[in-house]
C-alpha cells in the first residue's frame, strides 16, 4: 500500500500544476498491464464515486470494483494488476476500445490521480481520448500486434521499461529496442508540449466568436 500512496501523492503534486511538464516530453517507465478489451469508464471509476464537486482524489477509487472484493478496501483482488506488487510505473497498458461508455472526465482524473501519465491501447473511445488530452494524460494508440508485444514483454519481465517520446511520436520497448510510431494531431501535440489548454486558445478568440454570432444572426 505504501508504494501506491507515494505514487498518488506525487501525482497530486503534478496535478496541482496541471501541465505536462517539458521534461515529460519523454516518459520512461515500467508499465501496468490490464489485458482486457472494452474497458468502459464505469469500470475505471464507478458512478457512485462521481458525487464529488472537485477534481481531486479519484485515484483511490480507480478500477474500484475490479480492485477490491465486495467494495472492501481490506480485500484487494490479488490477481488484479493494480494490486500485484510486481507491476508499477506511470504507464497503463490496456486492451482495445479503452474508455468506452460514459463521458465522465472523472475517468481521466482517476487514472492521472493514481499516478499514470500515459495509457497505451490499440484503440481508444473518442470522448475518453479528448478528456485524457485535456488533462495532460497521453493516450498512445498502437497496432494490435505492437500491443501484444508490449503485453508479452511486460508479462515476461514486469520491470520492462517502455519509452514514450511525444516530440518524435514513438513508443519503444526499451530492452528489445522494438518501437512503433503513434499519431497525435499537431495542435494537440503543441498544447501538450507547451502546457496549453484549449480554453486558453478559445478565450483568445472571443472577438472572432462575437463576430461569428453577429454575422450569423
Amino acid at each position: 500500500m505504501s508504494v501506491i500512496t507515494t505514487i498518488e501523492e506525487e501525482s497530486r503534486k503534478n496535478l496541482s500544476t496541471a501541465k505536462f511538464q517539458s521534461e515529460r516530453k519523454i516518459i520512461q517507465s515500467a508499465a501496468v498491464p490490464v489485458e482486457l478489451e472494452n474497458i468502459d469508464t464505469d469500470q475505471i471509476i464507478p458512478a457512485r464515486f462521481l458525487k464529488a464537486t472537485t477534481r481531486e482524489g479519484f485515484g483511490k477509487n480507480l478500477f474500484r470494483d475490479w480492485r477490491y472484493e465486495n467494495d472492501d478496501e481490506n480485500k484487494p483482488v490479488q490477481n488484479f494488476p493494480l494490486n500485484n506488487k510486481i507491476y508499477s510505473g506511470k504507464i497503463l497498458v490496456a486492451g482495445k476500445n479503452f474508455g468506452c461508455g460514459s463521458s465522465r472526465e472523472h475517468a481521466a482524473w482517476a487514472i492521472k490521480d493514481y499516478g499514470f501519465d500515459a495509457v497505451v491501447s490499440s484503440f481508444f473511445a473518442d470522448i475518453f481520448k479528448n478528456n485524457a488530452l485535456n488533462n495532460f494524460l497521453l493516450p498512445v494508440q498502437v497496432s494490435d500486434a505492437f500491443l501484444e508485444k508490449i503485453f508479452n514483454a511486460v508479462k515476461k519481465d514486469p520491470a520492462t521499461a517502455l519509452e514514450i517520446n511525444l516530440e518524435e511520436q514513438y513508443i519503444k520497448i526499451v530492452p528489445t529496442g522494438e518501437q512503433e510510431n503513434f499519431e497525435i494531431n499537431n495542435y494537440k501535440k503543441t498544447c501538450l508540449l507547451n502546457g496549453y489548454d484549449d480554453i486558453d486558445y478559445l478565450l483568445s478568440m472571443k472577438h472572432e466568436i462575437e463576430t461569428y454570432e453577429a454575422v450569423r444572426n
Binding site: R55, S103, R104, E105, H106, A108, D126, I127, N130, N131, N134, N135, N185, Y187, D197, D198, I199, Y201, L202, L203, M205, K206, I209
Partner: peptide
C-alpha cells in the same frame, strides 16, 4: 449533438465554442 467531458463543459460555458476535429 454529442457528449463532452467536464473540461469541455467549462470551455463551452466560457466561450460557447469547442475545439473539434471533423469525424
Amino acid at each position: 449533438a454529442f457528449g463532452i467531458g467536464t473540461s469541455e463543459v467549462e470551455m463551452v460555458l466560457a466561450t460557447q465554442c469547442l475545439m473539434q476535429s471533423k469525424p
